[in-house]
């Protein structure tokens, strides 16, 4: 099974969020349309994920892309490059890992290769038109169309968590397209956190928003407090909203609190253990009413 659609309807950070949230494994194919503005990304790029982490980038039109990158670095002898090319059918571990085992590349060089792959992934965030298809891998780590295993020749053996990719990709985006800017949070809106903890490093402006994401302080107030321009705060907030770290909410009328609000998932867990159902204006509901209502619905519809 998989998900597919148009990048105009569902953006790359939204797709990555699903892969991250679901700790999914498989291949995400991104195909740009001819109308797409990022010409360097024409065609299809396949991003490979294992348990929600990015592990490889492959492209049917750039065969042996990782080897080409290694070759370009000029750090391995021609003889060894030829040997690496001949490995294709017999390799059983990622190419980067193989190079490490054979002492052909240092750990730093392999990390650099992953960085180079990631730069190509970041450029895909510029695509404003095209199609995506996420093909879930089965228990044998194979995707279905065509039946294919993870591309060991395109794998460094290193991984990068998807949230970090989304964050970096959104930061590198030169311009937000119209669909995204329509979602721009308003200066009078506040923010809430959608995650309890962060495993990635934030920029100062992002950290300011994160720290004040308690639903009580408006972006306008944050701008006054931090001296960041309101437009910069809005744009940065939008980027963090789109990758699923924050959510825009109307500012609560209550006084600001000094503690961080619990995440929504935690609230859901709390609500399921809440023994008394009540709202601000409504009292407790009697069990007689609930029971009668269930009986009424069962008997009349």
């Amino acid at each position: 099974m998989g998900i597919s659609g148009s990048l105009q309807d569902f953006s790359l950070p939204e797709i990555l969020q699903i892969i991250d949230n679901g700790s999914k494994s498989g291949r995400l194919s991104i195909t740009s349309s001819l109308k797409g503005k990022a010409l360097q990304n024409q065609g299809t790029n396949d991003l490979w994920f294992k348990n929600g982490n990015f592990v490889a980038l492959s492209n049917p039109f750039k065969y042996n892309n990782l080897l080409s990158l290694i070759k370009k670095e000029n750090i391995i002898s021609s003889k060894n490059i030829v040997k690496l090319y001949s490995l294709e059918r017999e390799i059983s571990i990622p190419l980067g890992e193989y190079c490490l085992q054979q002492s052909l590349l240092s750990v730093e060089r392999v990390n650099q290769l992953l960085e180079n792959q990631l730069k190509e992934v970041y450029s895909l965030f510029e695509l404003d038109d095209g199609w995506f298809f996420f093909d879930d891998a089965d228990s044998n780590n194979q995707v279905s169309e065509p039946k294919e295993s993870f591309p060991l020749m395109e794998m460094t053996g290193k991984k990068c968590d998807t949230l970090t990719i989304s964050l970096q990709g959104m930061r590198s985006l030169s311009k937000l397209d119209n669909r995204l800017t329509e979602q721009m949070p308003e200066p009078n809106s506040g923010l809430i956190k959608l995650e309890d903890n962060l495993n990635c490093k934030l920029l100062p402006i992002e950290a300011c928003l994160w720290d004040d994401a308690n639903g009580k302080m408006s972006l306008k107030k944050i701008a006054q407090k931090t001296l960041f321009e309101i437009q910069d705060l809005q744009t940065t907030a939008l980027r963090l909203i789109l990758i699923g770290l924050l959510e825009e909410v109307p500012v609560s009328r209550e006084e600001p609190q000094t503690y961080a609000a619990p995440s929504l998932e935690r609230k859901l867990a709390l609500s399921s253990t809440n023994s008394m159902v009540k709202t601000k204006s409504q009292g407790k509901v009697s069990n007689s009413l609930l029971g009668n209502l269930v009986d009424f619905l069962r008997n009349n519809f």
Binding site: D9, F10, I192, L194, L242, K267, L268, S271
Partner: peptide, 24 residues
């Protein structure tokens, strides 16, 4: 069948969750 609306659905859901703690 409208993935383009999921983002807004998330926003409505999170808004409600931020306001009340009710069975849903």
């Amino acid at each position: 069948h409208r993935p383009q609306d999921f983002y807004n659905g998330r926003r409505i859901f999170n808004f409600m969750q931020s306001k009340v703690n009710l069975p849903m």
